[in-house]
Design a binder for these strands. Structure first.
Length: 379
DNA sequence: TTCTCTGTTAGC
DNA sequence: GCTAACAGAGA
């Protein structure tokens, strides 16, 4: 159940991420629902359409996937349960869940009998799903849940090449709840998905970046409102109170993220790869000192298999914000300044006060603007 | 392998 | 012209 819950959270995080990246943001305002305003954690099965009506019900859901949450809360019952409820739920059903996970028969039973829950999750998914469910819902869930599976290096599926986003219907098979789907896809899909902006393989990232028509360097930050907006968004996210929020905040809290490039950029996939509490990851929260050997790569959640897919010495360091790849940690660190707005290099000239994010630029400025002054001073 | 410096490009 | 940002070369 912990995994279940974690996946659920994952799915939501990814979903949010997807929303953030969604082209059509009519759904972006959706997050509010995530505050679980009308979320009835105790959504009763009877509140869902009977099995015989599910098809129609789902049809209905699909036909109007784009319609934003409307006032009539009755129809929105199929929404995700709150974290708190999930926690409670996890506690009470943990044993049962474990049993289920271990027993295929139990899975069968679960997939066949708990229709209500299934419907519930489906309903929730449908309600929160942005228009293109095939991309939004199914793709995002995979990446981060895969991250969850990374630690288990024994998972053979991790070696599989990237697979296209699962079809929503497919994602619903088996244990079909979004969370279940996440679990399911987690194991079957590599940590990144092509549709994911933040979880692409470096070479893919480069491709995507290079393919970006005119990604002005200066334009990157604009798209990068993300580091902060993301931080704020996540900070406001209901998940901040979730068990995994600890790690999430550790990744995104602006405070930490200020200059801890190791935190911010090596963990780039964080939003989506948001690590649930149960993750047996070696080092969830990177300590530059602890990971001084290779802080960047480590936090990329790159499986050994994945690592072997691209050059070790080339652009290993990916900016978690804009996915830009760098071959050197220092480059990434400096680049991070462009996102954080940090300008650690201040002009030493008295009365100047100018600051730069790049040391060389500062020196250049010094030479250019204070050459006379400095020469005068030095001589 | 990484850092610093230099050169370059592009936006304002 | 100034600055941001990046890549390459050398240390």
């Amino acid at each position: 159940m912990a995994m279940h819950l974690a996946s659920m959270v994952h799915g939501n995080v990814r979903e949010r991420d997807a929303f953030q990246h969604a082209q059509h943001s009519p759904y972006y305002p959706a997050p509010p629902p995530r505050a679980y305003p009308g979320v009835n954690v105790n959504v009763a099965p009877q509140s869902y359409p009977a099995p015989a009506q599910q098809a129609e019900y789902h049809q209905y859901q699909r036909q109007r996937p784009q319609s934003p949450p409307s006032p009539p809360a009755e129809e929105q019952k199929p929404s995700l349960p709150s974290i708190s409820h999930l926690l409670e739920f996890a506690g009470s059903e943990k044993a049962a869940a474990e049993t289920v996970a271990q027993s295929p028969q139990s899975q069968q039973r679960q997939s066949s009998s708990p229709q209500p829950r299934q419907a519930q999750h489906r309903g929730a998914a449908s309600m929160q799903q942005p228009p293109p469910p095939s991309q939004m819902q199914s793709s995002r869930p995979e990446q981060c849940s895969t991250y969850a599976s990374v630690p288990s290096g024994s998972n053979p599926r991790m070696t599989l090449p990237p697979t296209p986003p699962m079809h929503p219907d497919v994602a619903h098979d088996g244990n079909q709840s979004p969370s279940a789907a996440s679990n399911h896809s987690a194991a079957s899909v590599p940590y990144f998905v092509g549709s994911s902006l933040n979880n692409m393989e470096p070479h893919h990232q480069r491709q995507s970046i290079s393919s970006m028509p005119s990604v002005k360097r200066d334009s990157i930050p604009s798209h990068n409102v993300s580091p902060y907006s993301a931080a704020s968004v996540y900070g406001q996210s209901p998940y901040a109170s979730s068990p995994g929020a600890a790690s999430a905040t550790s990744y995104y809290s602006p405070e930490q993220h200020s200059y801890n490039a190791a935190n911010m950029y090596a963990q780039r996939p964080l939003p989506s790869n948001f690590q649930p509490q149960a993750m047996p990851l070696p080092v969830p929260v990177p300590s530059p000192a602890a990971n001084s050997s290779n802080p960047w790569q480590h936090h990329h959640y790159i499986s050994t298999a994945s690592q072997s897919q691209f050059p070790q010495s080339q652009d290993r360091y990916i900016c978690s914000t804009c996915n830009k790849a760098f071959s050197r940690p220092s480059s990434l660190r400096i680049h991070s300044h462009s996102h954080t707005g940090e300008k650690p290099y201040k002009c030493p000239q008295a009365g100047c006060g100018k600051a730069f994010s790049v040391r060389s630029n500062m020196k250049r400025h010094e030479r250019g603007c204070h050459a006379a002054t400095s020469t005068t001073l030095t001589t």
